[in-house]
């Protein structure tokens, strides 16, 4: 479904991504592990069209994404829920969610149905619908961010560190919801530092270090890998 071939991204003379090749197949939940600054967000932004790769190809369903504008990529079904949520803080939760449906704005009936599905996933947002998104707790804001991304009707949903800064109990709930989104039919690419929790719901995983992919494997191999355990799980 998603295929990266030898992708490089540079910020000035600094090479943030170096020769990245990876694939995500339809229906999978793939985890991208890596420490702060490993290049996870750079990789997501390269796929979303927010960074321009200096070399290599990004293909989604056999269509070349690099060179397309961010809005064309969202319309094409690749949606990112970025680190730090990037909500519209003074707009209501409902307005935030409906802006997620911006690229489908002409299909009102479809959006309404989608909104119901999203509220089913995050029932608490229904009570908070009229409150400014910025007034919600961290966990609820993360739900709005994921809900907003789901309103764009992604076929590939990219989640960048959704557990960042959340209480352990909320993190657990967040991973359950991500698993649920995936089992309902959305392909998920999840960037995480919280390796153990992420691997538990993953089909496959990549490990990223200093802008390069250094390891790849399915859930079992990764959980059993000594190097992964030492570096990311701490056990």
């Amino acid at each position: 479904m998603l295929q990266l071939k030898n992708v490089d991204v540079c910020y000035g003379s600094f090479k943030a991504l170096n020769n990245i090749s990876m694939t995500v197949d339809t229906g999978e939940l793939v985890v991208l592990l890596g420490a702060n600054g490993a290049g996870k967000s750079s990789l997501f932004n390269a796929i979303s069209g927010l960074n321009k790769p200096s070399a290599g190809d990004v293909e989604f369903e056999d269509r070349r994404l690099n060179g397309l504008k961010p809005n064309a990529i969202v319309s094409g079904g690749v949606v990112q829920c970025a680190e730090g949520r990037k909500l519209f803080p003074h707009m209501s939760v409902l307005q935030n969610l409906m802006l997620g449906a911006y690229v489908h704005r002409r299909d009102r009936a479809g959006n309404k149905q989608r909104l119901n599905e999203v509220l089913e996933l995050f029932p608490i947002l229904e009570d908070k619908a009229q409150q400014p998104a910025g007034s919600l707790s961290g966990g609820q804001q993360q739900m709005v961010a994921i809900g907003r991304a789901m309103m764009s009707r992604p076929r590939l949903l990219m989640l960048d560190e959704p557990s960042l800064g959340l209480a352990p109990l909320v993190v657990k709930q967040m991973f359950e919801i991500i698993k649920q989104i995936n089992s309902l039919g959305t392909t998920v690419l999840l960037a995480e530092q919280n390796a153990f929790a992420a691997l538990k719901i993953a089909d496959r995983a990549y490990v990223m270090e200093n802008g390069q992919l250094v390891m790849e494997g399915d859930q079992e191999t990764m959980l059993g890998n000594e190097q992964v355990r030492r570096a990311y799980i701490g056990a």
Binding site: V74, L87, P89
Partner: peptide, 11 residues
């Protein structure tokens, strides 16, 4: 309110 957020939803 959020330039990045606007890009993410495809504005």
């Amino acid at each position: 309110q959020s330039r990045d957020g606007a890009f993410l939803v495809g504005i």
